[in-house]
Design a protein around this nucleic acid. Structure first.
Length: 122
DNA sequence: ATAATGACTGGGG
DNA sequence: ACCCCAGCCATTA
């Protein structure tokens, strides 16, 4: 159990990204107070337990491009899910200025304070 | 405790 | 636009 770990915070925050919006790995890291831990965010999402039902597809790279090459969470699936939520792609890119999630600090604090029901069960 | 591992990022060529 | 590189850092596949 680890409701305060970084992975858990990542899942918690990503769970609150609204449909039709996206965040970058670095953005999630920064919102959690670790602006250099973008890679770790990617790793956290890679190891997201399926039962948590996290909208993992709403996290893409800072260029507005899909990064995953994981079999379970494939680029094709991620793009499909995003398009289902109304995002339009220009080639391999989405317009970050248009779709990026922009929560205010109060929202973030509320989410993090609320904390946890996402603790791992292994 | 140390080493390896990435769904990253920004900069440079 | 593309490819490559070095720095990055929480976790342990």
């Amino acid at each position: 159990m680890n409701s305060t770990g970084f992975f858990n915070s990542v899942w918690l925050l990503v769970a609150h990204i609204p449909a039709g919006r996206v965040a970058s790995y670095g953005q999630i890291a920064a919102l959690l107070g670790h602006p250099r831990a973008a890679r770790t965010v990617g790793w956290a999402l890679h190891s997201t337990p399926d039962h948590l039902d996290i909208p993992w597809h709403r996290v893409i790279n800072s260029q507005g491009r899909i990064s995953t090459d994981c079999g379970e969470h494939s680029p094709g699936l991620q793009r499909y899910l995003l398009e289902q939520e109304g995002l339009q792609f220009d080639g391999d890119y989405v317009d970050m200025d248009r779709y990026q999630w922009q929560p205010d600090m109060a929202t973030i604090e509320a989410i993090l304070a609320k904390g946890h029901p996402l603790a791992r069960t292994d």
